[in-house]
């Protein structure tokens, strides 16, 4: 990006409203992952796109101030670590890695399917953070400078 100031006031105003709708939709997809098509990855990508909308509209300077990048890195690592820990709990409870060891509940209910919603949430956070951080780093790179050839 040439300037870090972002786009015009119209885009900024629209983004301010639409981002929250997109985040809401992302969480809807993530939380209903065990009932409908979608789930962790799909919802996570929508989450990342919501944050990337802010990046496009407001520029990378504002985005980095608004979202604490260091914190996002930690959340990314912690989410996959929690995923592994829940998987290892499966070994200790029922003897198989990633075993579904919580009560399954009733079919078609939001709170059901044991560990699958937990995994969906963790995967969603991981995908969102990874994708957002990857694109942020690519966008921040100054393509004209940096070579020492």
């Amino acid at each position: 990006m040439k300037n870090n100031q972002g786009m015009s006031i119209i885009v900024k105003t629209v983004t301010r409203v639409s981002v929250w709708l997109m985040v809401l939709y992302a969480w809807y997809i993530i939380l209903h992952g065990h009932l409908t098509p979608g789930g962790g990855f799909g919802g996570g990508v929508i989450f990342a796109i919501a944050m990337l909308n802010v990046l496009l509209a407001y520029g990378s300077e504002f985005t980095e101030k608004w979202l604490k990048i260091r914190l996002l890195h930690d959340i990314e690592a912690a989410s996959i670590l929690l995923f592994l820990i829940v998987g290892i709990l499966g070994i200790s409870v029922l003897g198989g890695f990633l075993t579904n060891f919580i009560l399954k509940g009733k079919l078609y209910e939001l709170i059901s399917a044991g560990t699958i919603p937990i995994f969906n949430i963790l995967i969603g956070i991981k995908v969102a953070m990874s994708l957002f951080l990857a694109v942020l780093i690519l966008a921040k790179t100054n393509i004209e400078n940096g070579g020492e050839v």
């Binding site: 990857a134 790179t141 070579g147």
Partner: peptide, 16 residues
Amino acid sequence: TALLVALAIKLYQKYK
């Protein structure tokens, strides 16, 4: 794709 794009950016920085 993300990895290849990152490598392409780095290659452009180095070789222009």
